[in-house]
């Protein structure tokens, strides 16, 4: 199986807990014979490398330096994520089983790649704008929420780390409950559960 993970943080860029989680996940995936790529953001360490744990990491930077907010920064960075992912795809005989995208930042790229190259994606929700923002009804937050919604709508499966989060997604975004899978990183069966989820999605999107 060949998987690309999209995450806006990956060591050495550590913003929150996600970077270390993605590192642990990708390392475990490689150990379980999954060809694993990570596409992430770094302002200066750009390019593709294979790291010691066998994970192939592609780091991209934003070609546009001046911005008026996180949204414009994010929406211009996505084209570079698409470029890196497309390079992986074309260098791998045009076969990528799935993309696993973490949080909303790279949802635009995942959506384009699904529609263009028929690569299905899993949307792993770490947090929601409704919980992060003190006022989720500002135009700014509404905008981010609409990107989250797009990800929930276009993904094959949604994964969350707790039942509470599953219920919140169902409540806030009206997603059918069976689309949301709880994969707890503290469970003994964690990596088995991840692989299980990947297997249900791989090749499932549009028959590729």
């Amino acid at each position: 199986m060949r998987v690309i993970i999209f995450s806006w943080e990956y060591p050495p860029r550590v913003v929150g807990q996600l970077a270390d989680y993605i590192k642990a996940l990708s390392t475990q995936l490689v150990k379980n014979k999954v060809e694993t790529y990570v596409v992430t953001y770094h302002d200066s360490l750009t390019g593709a490398v294979e790291e010691a744990n066998g994970v192939r990491v592609a780091r991209v930077a934003n070609p546009v330096r001046a911005h008026i907010g996180v949204l414009t920064w994010d929406l211009t960075l996505n084209q570079e994520v698409e470029r890196a992912a497309a390079s992986i795809y074309y260098n791998a005989d045009e076969k990528v089983d799935l993309i696993n995208v973490y949080d909303w930042h790279f949802i635009p790229a995942a959506v384009t790649l699904k529609n263009a190259l028929k690569i299905p994606f899993v949307y792993s929700v770490e947090s929601l704008e409704n919980h992060r923002s003190p006022d989720p009804n500002t135009p700014y937050s509404m905008s981010i929420k609409s990107i989250e919604w797009l990800g929930l709508y276009e993904s094959e499966k949604v994964s969350v780390k707790s039942e509470w989060m599953r219920d919140e997604i169902v409540r806030i975004h009206n997603v059918p409950e069976e689309k949301v899978k709880v994969v707890s990183p503290s469970a003994d069966s964690w990596i088995k559960d991840v692989l299980e989820l990947y297997k249900t999605v791989a090749g499932g999107a549009n028959g590729k």
Binding site: G69, P108, S143
Partner: peptide, 19 residues
Amino acid sequence: NPSPDFATWVYLMNLNMQR
């Protein structure tokens, strides 16, 4: 997608155009 300003609208419109 709702957008806070014109420039952000442009990029969000591009997201949908691309899709």
